[in-house]
Amino acid sequence: MKTQTWKTVGTILLVFFGGLALVFASFALTGFPFPSETIPNLIWVELVLLVVLLGIPLFR
């Protein structure tokens, strides 16, 4: 039980710090991002992703 708790805490820390490290890696590779205007077509990309995800179980 105790080991499981430590494992969960470890996973949570890994997710946050590992994610932080990956975000830094993306900055190092592609340059530090600067604030910009939201892309107007982003909603369509996200809608397509949702439709694709909804479609996957139907064709399985």
Partner: peptide, 26 residues
């Protein structure tokens, strides 16, 4: 949050999915 380009948006989106999966997989 402020929009910091498509790359950072995509990275955040994917990392949030992966992170949620890692925490909830057990």
């Amino acid at each position: 949050p402020q929009f910091f380009g498509l790359i950072h948006y995509g990275v955040s989106f994917v990392l949030a999915i992966m992170g949620t999966y890692l925490i909830m997989r057990n």
